[in-house]
Design a protein around this nucleic acid. Structure first.
Lengths: 165, 165
DNA sequence: TTGAGATTGTTCGGGTACGAATAATATACA
DNA sequence: TGTATATTATTCGTACCCGAACAATCTCAA
């Protein structure tokens, strides 16, 4: 998953390609590992928890957000799920086809659409979420206990940068 | 980008939904922030560096990997880029159409395909990569200097879990 | 040397993923 | 009252994304 080359090898190669430029390898390592970790963890959870229920990663996240905040506007679901409105439209159509979620037009504002889970959707989440969390525990088991809170904090600091812009 | 709800609110809601179950909220916070950070940083870099060159995130990563290791087998490119072989086929077709990369069949092994950059591809990377790194520096500026190496290390620990499985 | 098994890249089908354009609805101001 | 402006979800076009099935190629033992 990480690839066959070490970070040191990669840095040496990059230095060679850009020996005339000043680069911040530490910043590079952080973003590089951030994406490797995210995709590795995501693929792992998709294969070990989500695949049997036929749910994609994004579909699960949307279901999760809805489960917590229902009834909730699509605008909020997209924001909380970290996807665009356009993407959400497609994912919601999938979830409606699978009979896990329902769209309702808001009575107060005709532009808004509210999302709710079906009973099947709620049942699925009650079964899936604990299994999901169990895998998450496994996943972070390689990070020393005393560092986990700090890791979450630093990740949040990364997020905070993009928010202000 | 983070959404309108705080982590504390979310935890309270989740507790309410699953009050009868034991959950590890710290593990949850780590993976949650991991994905938020990855997608936030990715979107930020796509908008601020990649958009003007018409390159997608994945196309850039593939180009980057090829740039460093060329000539390189597609199998390795896929592995290093963190995408599947199937996805790479499409991305490489895009890069060939844009005249940034070239596919060559390996002389020694008829199954293998080697990837190389065109002159245009190399020129693009020499221009793009420093700009990219500059943004990366900006991105990590909110993480205290003395913690950055540790952050990279912890992310690598997350990756290491999925490798063994 | 031939044929079973492994490896590699592509194709296929279905589902994200985004920005831009669009249609429907609501708001504000004249 | 009406009309410009803003806000919302959807549609559209293009590109990614994966697993599974596939065809081409290589390996190695009988």
């Amino acid at each position: 998953m990480t690839g066959s080359h070490t970070l040191v090898e990669t840095e040496a190669r990059v230095s060679h390609r850009l020996s005339h430029m000043t680069l911040d390898f530490e910043a590079m390592a952080v973003t590089h590992n951030l994406f490797r970790a995210a995709s590795a963890v995501r693929n792992h959870l998709e294969r070990n928890v989500l695949s049997e229920s036929g749910l994609s990663w994004t579909a699960f996240v949307v279901l999760w957000v809805t489960w917590i905040w229902e009834p909730v506007e699509t605008r909020v679901v997209a924001l909380e799920s970290g996807i665009s409105k356009a993407t959400l439209t497609g994912v919601l159509s999938t979830l409606e086809k699978l009979d896990f979620a329902v769209r309702t037009r808001s009575p107060e504002d005709g532009r808004r659409v509210l999302v709710t889970l079906t009973d099947a959707g709620r049942a699925l989440m009650e079964e899936l979420f604990p299994a999901f969390n169990l895998q998450e525990v496994d996943l972070v088991s390689h990070v020393p206990v005393e560092n986990r809170t700090e890791l979450a904090t630093m990740l949040r600091q990364l997020i905070s940068y993009t928010e202000q812009a």
